[in-house]
Design a protein around this nucleic acid. Structure first.
Lengths: 112, 112
DNA sequence: TGAGGTACTTACCTTTTTGTAAGGAAGGAC
DNA sequence: GTCCTTCCTTACAAAAAGGTAAGTACCTCA
């Protein structure tokens, strides 16, 4: 979104993890490193282009680490950095809130 | 963003408060009702069109309540609903995280 | 008659984000 | 040689988000 300077901490945080895919990607990495193909299969609906694009941005923001294994066929693992892990923890209450109110949210959105 | 059905709670939550302005609007309403003009002046950089648009969406999602006072000149107050207040609380850790790491985030983004 | 204040509304446009489809590199297995 | 896997890359198009500028309605006060 690139909206510097930030008005507040929340503004900055949303700039990093907002959008359609980033929160889900961070979530997936919660339990350890995952390969590109694994992520693609987990995040149903995402295209390879979007996945790599989001991963590159998360990497540039130092939230995700990319480890390349020089093998054939190629193997690349993505994992949370320490920084990314702290963000993930800050997202837990938001995830819980969404989970708790999912039915209400979907009902409103479907009606709208 | 309209991306039903949601893959997880975080997905749903981000759908409600994602974007450039919504988190900041919710944040502003934390300490009680505010008039349209007050919000416009607080949220530096926002246009009247964007403000009303975001407020209407927050209202449709039952996060914000709109109260009209039939006076001249007009007076309209926006406030958090109980539902909106619970979301705001879930956003506190994220806001704290952003605040804590603001310098690092801005530096990375500026470098980008 | 006309200016002023508040809260919108509308038309139009630009930018950003997201999606689709196809192709490429690298080397092992056949 | 040709296929297979994995991890990307590119060109292009569609959709969504965001921004600009102007105008509206209401009544009050001068």
């Amino acid at each position: 979104m690139a909206r510097l300077p930030y008005a507040c901490g929340l503004d900055a945080a949303v700039d990093l993890m907002g959008g359609k895919w980033k929160a889900r990607i961070l979530w997936q990495l919660h339990d350890g490193p995952h390969r590109f193909g694994e992520l693609r299969r987990s995040l149903t609906g995402i295209s390879e282009k979007m996945l790599i694009q989001q991963l590159r941005e998360l990497e540039a923001d130092e939230l995700v680490h990319r480890e390349v294994y020089r093998e054939v066929p190629p193997k690349v693992e993505y994992s949370l950095t320490g920084f990314g892990a702290t963000l993930n923890e800050a997202l837990v209450p938001l995830g819980d809130w969404g989970h708790e109110h999912m039915a209400r949210i979907e009902a409103r959105r479907a009606a709208g």
